[in-house]
Amino acid sequence: MVIGPYQHPLAFISTDVADEPPPRDFRISPPKAVALKLHKVEKQFGDNRVLRGIDLDLEPGQFLAIVGKSGCGKSTLLRLLTGLDVPTDGHIGFLDEEGRETASNARIVFQEPRLLPWFDAADNVAAGLGPDVPKPEARRLAEAALGEVQLAEKAREWPAKLSGGQKQRVALARALVSRPGLLALDEPLGALDALTRISMQKLLNRVWRELGCTAVLVTHDVAEAVHLADRVIVLEEGRIKLDLPVPQPHPRRHGDPVLAELEGQLLASILGEA
């Protein structure tokens, strides 16, 4: 697959472009990928201990997938990482490239696209920039981000007119437009049909490699996890049961025997056969 010349949409805002040499690479770097450091993270809802002492280190730019049975705490963990919930105990650190604590700058894509039905696709994406970016600027950035998810021609369409896969691509563009350091994906492809899902996986893989952000994917689809992630962890009853690196280079081929082997290992672990 040929990746087209990638123009970073934020590039033109930069004030000192003239002084800098032209970028060698398509990966200009406002997305400062963050490293994650979780130390004994606990989450309790009433008497229910959903997460029991999670320790996890994630390098910047790494793609982590979290799998496990329903109710194992994987979505809760993701909500903690994005700041939607706070841990009952323990510490979650976001570190920049020099290892200093930094703001998380996380964006999340949910299983449901959660688009505002009264905004067209581009305004929905523009909402991802937050309230500080002036409107025409936001609109331009949003249209560029829609281009990244191959939906440039749908910029003026109402969400109600888009298909499920297209809506999810708009939601992805909204998460990406602000160049997050951490991209959190909560079963983003769970509601899509099998074929749309495969093309969405390709898209996710491509934008992740282009942006170089850290990514955390929660999924119940083990094949999806090994296809996309550098590392897969299995959660069971709030603990990490298995931590499995996936060393294959990207982009990956469907039906790769090494991936199939890893998939088998993960399934065995989730189903308790290992």
Binding site: T82, L84, R107, I108, F110, E112, R114, L116, A127, G128, G130, R174
Partner: peptide
């Protein structure tokens, strides 16, 4: 869900 989304952004 939309309210939560709005707050996230």
């Amino acid at each position: 869900d939309l309210l939560e989304m709005g707050r996230i952004y």
